[in-house]
Nucleic acid binder design. Structure first.
Length: 671
RNA sequence: GCGCCCGUAGCUCAGUUGGAUAGAGCGACAGGCUUCGAACCUGUAGGCCGGGGGUUCGAUUCCCUCCGGGCGCACCA
C-alpha cells in the first residue's frame, strides 16, 4: 500500500515548508496521483497554497521545496513541475518487490462492532431486480468492511407478520381453496416462490374486483399477528419456504448472512412492549387526545433536525407542518396495534444493545459458503449460539423512499439520550431499480397512458411486474455457458455450466455496482445481458487470461509463480526503467495502478460509493488487457524482462482478483 | 408546499476530501487474429459539465438562485 509512503512524504514536505518559510503551521495539503506516469507517481500541490501567502509564483516555490527535501526512503527523485506541482517518482523496484513479497499489509480499521442489515424481502413471493440491488449493495458493503478488519454481522430482517404475507394466505385460501396440506403439496411440486409471485398478482386483482374483499385481508392479518390457526400455521409454512427460496437465490449470487431476524419474534418476545416502556417513560411518545390522531400514541417529528455529519444520504428530512402545527408520527394506532415504525425502533434498540432484552437463537441452515446461518426464535434457544447484536455502528440498507422512516430511528435514539448511537445509525440509501419500457413490454406489460410519459416503468410485486432474479440468472448463465462451450470445445458441459453461472453472477453484480447509489437504474434486459465493454465478464476475462499465462508458464517452462517471484529479485530491472516505460501501458503503470486497491477501499468506505471500486477494477482490467496486447510475456526473449513482466502480472492479477472478490465475483477456470 | 435524489458526448454513466489537456462503455466510422485466447486491442468523430450569480490562485466538484425530471411527506410496510 502506498499509504506509508504518503505519510513519510507528507511529513517531510511539511517540515521542509515550515523550516524554509518560518511557518509554525504549514498549510494543509493533500497528496494526489498525477494523471499519468510521465508526471510521476505522487503529486503535491502545496506550492499553490503558499503562493498567495508568500507572493511568489508557485513554480519558484516548488523548486525551492524540491531542493530542500533530502532523500526519502522509497522515493527516487522529486521534481518541480512548470505549473507548480511537486512531482515524486517512486523507487519502482523496491515498491513492486515489497508487494510481491507480501510485506505491505492493508491498513486495519478500528474494530468497531458493526451490523449490516440488508435484503429484507417480504416473504410472500420471488425476489426481483429491485431486491437484487439491495442485496448486492449490502453484501458488498459487508465484504468491504470486513476487508479492512471491521467485525461485521449481516442480518436479514424477515417481516413474517405483514400485509403482504396476509395477502398470499388469502390467495391460497380463497383463490386456490387450499388448506395447509394443500399448500405443502404445492410447495413440494412447484418453484414455490415463483408460484406465489403469480398468485400474489392474482390476489391484488381479486381485491380490486370487489373492494369489500379487503376485509378478509384485515381478518387474516389479525389472526397472523395473534398466532391464531389456521392462518398462523399457514403463514409460518409459507414464510419458511419463501425465505429458503430467497436464500437459495441469494446464494447463487454469493450473498450470505449471519442472522435472520423475525418480526414475529420481536412481537412474541415483547421487544415492542419494552421499547414502548422506555419511549413513554422518557416522554418520546405521548397519547394524542385531540385532532384526527386522537387516541394514538405519537412521536413528534423534529423540525429541521440538527446538522449531522455522516455519509451522504443520511440527512434529516425536515418535516414542516402543512397546517402550521408540529407534525406527529403514529407509533401505536388508536386500536392499540403498533405500527412498523414502532417495531423498527424496538429492533434498532436491540441492535445497539439498548433494549435490555435478547432473542433466543436456533441454527437455520448451513450456507453454500460453509458458514452457519442463525435465526431468531421465541422457542427454546441453542446455547451454542454466538452473541448477536450489541453493535456500535449499524448500516441499514434500504432504498431512498424509506429515508423518512430511517430518520425517525435516529430521532428516537437522540430523544432517549443516545446521540452517539443516533450518529451511528446509518441509512445506506440508494435509488430504486425500474424497468425500461422495452423490458416491461417483453414481460407482457402493456403500458398505460401514465407510463408513457415517464422514462421508465416502476417494478411492482403487487402487479407481478418485475424481472425475477432467478429468471435473470438462468438467462445469463445459459447464454454464458454456451459462449464458454463455443470457445472451449474440449471443456465438459459441467464445467461450462459452472463457468456460465459464475459469469452470470459477474455480469449481474457488476451491473448493480457500477452506478452510483443515487442514480435510479432503468433496468433493461438487453443491456444487462451484455458481456462486452464495461461488464463483469470483461473483468473476469482479464483474470482468466492472466491465469492462462501462468498455466502456460508451468506447462512450457515447468516453473510456477513461486519460482518467478524467487528469480525476480536477482534479475536486472531495466523493464521498470523510467525512460524505457513512461507509457500508461507499461509494466510499472499497471503495477502502480493495481496497488491503489487499499486506497480505493478506504474511499469506498468513506463515501459508501461502490462505483469507485467498480471503476478501479475495470480500469485495471483495461490497462492489463492493453499491456497484454502490447508486451509479450512468455514470448519475451530477454529473460530479465520476461521475469519482471511475469512477476508484475502476478501482482496485477492478485489485486484484480481481490477487487472482484470484494464485489462478490468469482473467477471462472475457463471462459 | 416542504424534504431528499438526479441533470456531464447521440445513448447509458464515472468523475465524493476543489487541482494538470473533462473520462469510460455502447453506438458510428477506420483498422488489427499464422503470435501468451479477438468476451480483446488501436485510431477518428462527438462536450456553453441544465441556466445564472457567488467563494477561490483554481469549480463538473463548495454556496445561493432558477429551470427540468424522479421519489417521499398514511392510524401501509
Amino acid at each position: 500500500m502506498i499509504l506509508d509512503v504518503q505519510h513519510r512524504v507528507h511529513d517531510a514536505i511539511a517540515q521542509a515548508v515550515a523550516r524554509r518559510y518560518g511557518l509554525a503551521e504549514p498549510p494543509a495539503f493533500g497528496i494526489e496521483i498525477p494523471p499519468n506516469r510521465a508526471l510521476g507517481d505522487l503529486a503535491i500541490p502545496v506550492a499553490f497554497q503558499l503562493a498567495r501567502m508568500l507572493r511568489k509564483p508557485p513554480r519558484a516555490i516548488a523548486q525551492e521545496i524540491a531542493g530542500l527535501v533530502g532523500p526519502l526512503p522509497g522515493v527516487r527523485r522529486i521534481a518541480a513541475a512548470p505549473n507548480g506541482y511537486l512531482n515524486l517518482y517512486l523507487d519502482r523496484r523496491a515498491y513492486l518487490l515489497a508487494r510481491l513479497k507480501g510485506e505491505v499489509a492493508p491498513p486495519r480499521a478500528p474494530a468497531v462492532r458493526t451490523i449490516v442489515e440488508h435484503t429484507a424481502i417480504n416473504p410472500n413471493k420471488a425476489a426481483h431486480v429491485g431486491h437484487l440491488r439491495n442485496a448486492v449493495l449490502g453484501d458488498t458493503l459487508a465484504r468491504v468492511l470486513a476487508f479492512r478488519g471491521t467485525p461485521v454481522e449481516v442480518q436479514n430482517y424477515i417481516d413474517d407478520l405483514g400485509v403482504q404475507v396476509a395477502d398470499i394466505i388469502v390467495g391460497f385460501r380463497e383463490l386456490e381453496r387450499l388448506d395447509l396440506g394443500g399448500v405443502q403439496r404445492t410447495a413440494d411440486t412447484t418453484r414455490f416462490d415463483h408460484h406465489c409471485w403469480d398468485l400474489y398478482a392474482r390476489v391484488t386483482e381479486w381485491y380490486d374486483g370487489q373492494p369489500d374483499r379487503l376485509a378478509l385481508r384485515g381478518a387474516t392479518l389479525h389472526d397472523l399477528e395473534h398466532g391464531i390457526d389456521p392462518v398462523a400455521s399457514l403463514g409460518a409454512f409459507i414464510v419458511d419456504r419463501i425465505v429458503r427460496a430467497h436464500l437459495q437465490t441469494m446464494a447463487r449470487l454469493n450473498v450470505f448472512y449471519d442472522l435472520l431476524t423475525y418480526e414475529g419474534d420481536i412481537v412474541r418476545l415483547q421487544f415492542w412492549a419494552r421499547a414502548f416502556e422506555i419511549l413513554r417513560a422518557q416522554g418520546a411518545v405521548f397519547r394524542q387526545t385531540a385532532g384526527k390522531l386522537a387516541g394514538c400514541w405519537v412521536m413528534r417529528i423534529e423540525e429541521g433536525g440538527e446538522d449531522r455529519e455522516g455519509a451522504p444520504g443520511t440527512a434529516e428530512p425536515v418535516a414542516a407542518g402543512d397546517d402550521g402545527g408540529p407534525r406527529e408520527k403514529v407509533i401505536v394506532r388508536s386500536n392499540g396495534v403498533v405500527t412498523y415504525v414502532g417495531k423498527d425502533i424496538a429492533n434498532q434498540f436491540w441492535k445497539f444493545g439498548l433494549l435490555g432484552r435478547d432473542f433466543r437463537y436456533r441454527p437455520f441452515l448451513t450456507q453454500a459458503n460453509g458458514a452457519p446461518l442463525w435465526s431468531t426464535t421465541s422457542g427454546p434457544g441453542d446455547r451454542s449460539a454466538p452473541g448477536f447484536g450489541r453493535a456500535e455502528r449499524i448500516y441499514n440498507v434500504i432504498d431512498s423512499r424509506q429515508m423518512y422512516l430511517q430518520a425517525l430511528l435516529g430521532q428516537a435514539l437522540r430523544t432517549l439520550g443516545h446521540p452517539e448511537q443516533a450518529a451511528n445509525s446509518i441509512h445506506f440509501s440508494y435509488e430504486m431499480v425500474a424497468l425500461s419500457h422495452a423490458t416491461a413490454r417483453a414481460l407482457g406489460y402493456e403500458s398505460g397512458p401514465d407510463d408513457a410519459k415517464k422514462p421508465f416503468v416502476e417494478v411492482s410485486g403487487r402487479k407481478g411486474l418485475g424481472v425475477k432474479i432467478d429468471d435473470l440468472l438462468d438467462l445469463l448463465a445459459g447464454k454464458a455457458a454456451s459462449e464458454v462451450a463455443k470457445r472451449n470445445p474440449a471443456v465438459t458441459p459441467e464445467e461450462c455450466a459452472r463457468a456460465g453461472a459464475q459469469i452470470a453472477v459477474g455480469a449481474i453484480r457488476y451491473f448493480m455496482l457500477k452506478f452510483s447509489r443515487g442514480k435510479l437504474i432503468v433496468f433493461d434486459i438487453e443491456e444487462a445481458l451484455s458481456f462486452e465493454g464495461e461488464t463483469g465478464p470483461y473483468l473476469q476475462y482479464a483474470v482468466v487470461r492472466a491465469n492462462n499465462i501462468f498455466h502456460k508458464l508451468r506447462e512450457r517452462d515447468g516453473i510456477g509463480e513461486a519460482e518467478v517471484l524467487a528469480r525476480v529479485e536477482a534479475a536486472p530491472d531495466e523493464e521498470l526503467a523510467e525512460g524505457d516505460a513512461a507509457s500508461d501501458h507499461s509494466l510499472w503503470a499497471i503495477v502502480y495502478e493495481a496497488s491503489q486497491l487499499d486506497d480505493i477501499v478506504d474511499q469506498v468506505v468513506r463515501s459508501l460509493e461502490f462505483s469507485a471500486l467498480a471503476k478501479y477494477a475495470f480500469g485495471l482490467a483495461q490497462a492489463f488487457n492493453a499491456f497484454y496486447h502490447q508486451y509479450p510475456i512468455l514470448n519475451e526473449e530477454n529473460a530479465a524482462r520476461r521475469t519482471w513482466r511475469a512477476a508484475g502480472v502476478a501482482y496485477v492479477r492478485a489485486q484484480l482478483a481481490a477487487a472482484l472478490e470484494l464485489m462478490g465475483i468469482a473467477v471462472p477456470s475457463r471462459m
